[in-house]
C-alpha cells in the first residue's frame, strides 16, 4: 500500500502521519507537496491536520483550491482511498468530497483532549479491522470540529451508513448527532476530527488509532 501525505503550507500533522505509516506500519510513504498534480503512484492519500494556508478564513476554504486538490478529486473518483484527519476533514468537506460543514466548536474554544469514539460502521476500508460498537480512545485538537448538515443530508448519511464514528459520551464540540467521522457513499473517502495518528503507540497512552491504519493496510 503506497501512501502519500499531502503537505499544504501550514499543515502540522503531516509529520505525525508520515511517522506512523513509515515507522509503525512499515509502509512506503512520501510527502506530497501541495502543488503536485500527479498522484498516480499512491493507493491512499492522507490529508493531515494543521492550519492549511493559515486558515485565517474558514478552515480548509483556501486549501480546496490548491493544485493538489484537483488530483485528489480524480484519485477519489477512481475509487482510491483518501483519509482526511482534522484539517484534512475540513478540507474534504470544503472540496465537497464529503457532505456537510464543520463549524466552530459550541464552546467557542479550541479543545485538545483524549475522547472516546465509537465505530458505527465496520464495513469500510478504514474500519474493517474494527468491530461495530467498538469504543476507541484518541485525542482531538481543533477549534472548528462541530459537524453540521441539513436534515435531508443527515437522513442520507444514516440511510447509507456513512456515519463511521460517533463520540461516545463526551461530545467535545457539539457535533450534530455526535458525529466524529463520516465517509462518502462509495466508502473510499473518510473524514474524521479525532487523530488516529496520535494514538498508534503505547508510549503515547493509546494504540486504538492503529485499527484505522491497519484497516487501510490490511484491507
Amino acid at each position: 500500500m503506497n501512501f502519500g501525505v499531502v503537505v499544504f503550507p501550514g499543515s502540522n500533522c503531516d509529520v505525525d502521519a508520515y511517522h506512523v505509516i513509515k515507522n509503525v506500519l512499515a509502509q512506503p510513504v512520501d510527502y506530497v507537496w501541495h502543488q503536485e498534480t500527479n498522484l498516480s503512484k499512491y493507493d491512499c492519500l492522507v490529508l493531515p491536520g494543521g492550519f492549511s494556508y493559515g486558515d485565517y478564513l474558514r478552515c480548509g476554504a483556501i486549501a480546496r483550491f490548491s493544485p493538489v486538490m484537483q488530483a485528489v478529486q480524480e484519485h477519489a473518483a477512481r475509487g482510491k482511498l483518501v483519509i482526511g484527519i482534522c484539517n484534512g476533514f475540513q478540507i474534504l468537506v470544503e472540496a465537497r468530497l464529503l457532505p456537510g460543514a464543520l463549524l466552530k466548536n459550541v464552546g467557542q474554544r479550541f479543545v485538545c483532549k483524549f475522547v472516546r469514539i465509537r465505530c458505527e460502521n465496520d464495513d469500510t476500508p478504514f474500519t474493517r479491522r474494527l468491530t461495530k460498537g467498538q469504543v476507541l480512545s484518541m485525542p482531538v485538537a481543533h477549534g472548528e470540529g462541530c459537524y453540521y448538515c441539513d436534515a435531508a443530508t443527515l437522513a442520507a448519511l444514516k440511510a447509507n451508513h456513512q456515519i463511521v464514528f460517533r463520540y461516545d459520551g463526551d461530545n467535545p464540540n457539539g457535533s450534530l448527532d455526535d458525529i466524529a467521522g463520516i465517509c462518502n457513499r462509495e466508502r473510499n473517502v473518510l473524514g474524521m476530527m479525532p487523530h488516529p495518528e496520535r494514538a498508534a503507540e503505547a508510549i503515547l497512552g493509546s494504540v486504538d488509532g492503529r485499527g484505522v491504519w491497519e484497516s487501510i493496510v490490511q484491507g
Binding site: D16, V111, K113
Partner: peptide, 13 residues
C-alpha cells in the same frame, strides 16, 4: 491546557 494542542508531534508521554 485543554485549549492548547498538547499532543501534536506525537511525543507527549
Amino acid at each position: 491546557f485543554h485549549q492548547y494542542d498538547h499532543t501534536v508531534q506525537t511525543n507527549t508521554v
